[in-house]
């Protein structure tokens, strides 16, 4: 099921990032295979968000470069879409406008963008809420809006910064299952930041473990064997449990 290693959608090469005196990333290199989901996992403050924003083109690296489909990143582009941790919805706009907002900024005509948005609203299970406002939605529903907005611009690369951290545990599990089928359905490359080892192992094709500042990739893990087993089998799979233990073993010394 794995795509060949040559099929790389995003490459980060020797990225360093300093915030004044704080060295957040040093010489970080990492490849993101096309059509797969790569998780960035690491202790808090190690620079996961920083890396993601550099890939998104929202931050400039102090040195090093990012390539998407062989082209160097100089700023935000139509090939990438961001799903924000705190959703970043417009409180004064209803669900329909929020989902269509990415297209609105790209100058797509209203009728067209709303038709597209409606499709994705249905996809993420929010049909019937088109006219609701963000404050009328639960956290989980808001994140679905953010997800639909990112999907509707049809970027090849989806960047997700702890997208499920602000929703409750049940919703979170549902989201993880949905994400798995999304990865399978859409031919997109996902880059996913998370704090949760279980979540990373559950949803990822590739897990990059980052060490604390200045941060590099310490290890790349490719859970694979259990991916085809179906959503509810995975959590019981021995390989899944082993990988979770292994990652915890290598991370725990940084938590003390």
């Amino acid at each position: 099921m794995r795509t060949p290693a040559s099929e790389i959608a995003v490459t980060a090469r020797r990225i360093s990032k300093n915030y004044g005196a704080v060295e957040a990333l040093r010489n970080l290199s990492l490849d993101f295979p096309r059509g797969q989901l790569t998780s960035l996992l690491g202790p808090s403050g190690c620079g996961k968000t920083t890396l993601l924003k550099i890939i998104a083109g929202l931050l400039e690296p102090t040195s090093g470069e990012v390539e998407v489909n062989g082209k160097a990143v100089t700023g935000p582009g139509p090939d990438r879409a961001f799903v924000f941790q705190d959703f970043a919805l417009l409180p004064w706009a209803n669900v329909l406008r929020n989902v269509a907002f990415g297209l609105e900024l790209r100058g797509i005509a209203r009728s067209e963008r709303e038709a597209i948005a409606e499709g994705y609203i249905r996809n993420v299970g929010l049909a019937g809420f088109e006219a609701s406002y963000p404050h009328e939605l639960s956290g989980g529903m808001r994140q679905r809006v953010g997800l639909a907005r990112a999907l509707s611009v049809d970027a090849q690369v989806l960047l997700m910064d702890e997208p499920f951290s602000a929703v409750d545990e049940q919703t979170r599990r549902k989201f993880q299952e949905d994400l798995l089928s999304l990865v399978q359905r859409e031919a997109k490359t996902f880059i996913f930041v998370t704090h949760s080892i279980e979540e990373a192992v559950y949803v990822s094709d590739q897990i990059a473990i980052l060490l604390p500042r200045p941060s590099r990739v310490s290890e790349i893990i490719r859970p694979g064997g259990f991916r085809n087993k179906g959503a509810d089998q995975i959590r019981r799979d021995p390989e899944y449990l082993d990988i979770v233990d292994e990652i915890w073993a290598s991370l725990r010394r940084y938590v003390e």
Binding site: L58, P76, G77, P78, F84, D86, A88, L105, R106
Partner: peptide, 14 residues
């Protein structure tokens, strides 16, 4: 809020 501005930039708003 910074996330809103970043959202605008990441979706290529002028």
């Amino acid at each position: 809020p910074t996330p809103l501005k970043e959202m605008g930039r990441s979706f290529l708003g002028s």
